[in-house]
Design a protein around this nucleic acid. Sequence first.
DNA 1: GACATATCATTCGCATACGAACGATCTTCG
DNA 2: CGAAGATCGTTCGTATGCGAATGATATGTC
Lengths: 150, 150
Amino acid sequence: MDPAGHLQDEQNEQDHYVLDEQVGFLLRQAQQRHAGLFSECFGGDMTPTQWAVLAKLAEIGECSQNLLGRYTAMDVATIKGVVQRLLVRHLVLRRRDPDDGRQLLISLSNDGRAAFDRHLADARRASESTLAALSEKDQAVFMRCLKALR
Amino acid sequence: MDPAGHLQDEQNEQDHYVLDEQVGFLLRQAQQRHAGLFSECFGGDMTPTQWAVLAKLAEIGECSQNLLGRYTAMDVATIKGVVQRLLVRHLVLRRRDPDDGRQLLISLSNDGRAAFDRHLADARRASESTLAALSEKDQAVFMRCLKALR
DNA sequence: GACATATCATTCGCATACGAACGATCTTCG
DNA sequence: CGAAGATCGTTCGTATGCGAATGATATGTC
């Protein structure tokens, strides 16, 4: 009815940018949701990053701090902090590599192994809860897409 | 050939937990990747969260700090910090709500509006780059799934 | 009006995240 | 052997992200 209004609509069409439609914004929220579920499942006993370190050590055994960081997708500064906190809780061991004075070798302690075993079911539950809103088929596509985005 | 080895395989089957197959771990990496691309596209000039605040303010206009936090999926403590940093850069304005002494009203400054306009293309490029590895069809499914995970 | 309740903003402590700079150590090449 | 370059760990500064506690202000009810 109003030519001016119509013109403005076309302008808006061009400038259309809705935050809630942006991948990055949605990714952040999905991770927030997962972190919440993770904390619930673990009884607040451990963070996702700390669990990632335990799980990777359980998977591959003793490993240099640097490599451990790469395997768990953490910056050198970040992995240092995470390992430090796990050390304080006696969940991992740290020693100098006798063959390379630069490296620190990190491994699971007995307590760390026990914590991994104890929380394994929680971890599975956290992953499952996060994806619960999706159909089986969507879950498969979603996971495939996530891997492709790395 | 080795019965013991076979038995161990079945045991491993049951204990199977591979970090790289977990949603949370993949979500974290996807976000890391997006953050990197975002920083590239923006020339390191702004963080995704800061951009989210600008974009939301451009979308809805003046808004209480609390509500702004909810719209941008940020904790009250987080939104406070983000707004503070945008204030220092004179990209947003802050004033007390005359009708409610508890609230702070946040809005775009002229500089903030200019920054939003200037970076709009960068933001679109960041979103596009993040999804570039997926087919059109996968992108659609992926975005639908992400929204469902909120 | 007075009191209980709810909402908002601030602050503190802790835990990721990353870039950059630094020193120590190893490897490689001449 | 010795210098150059690569790798590893540490540290600093900055920016999210969240739970919990606190004080200020609004709202609802009596």
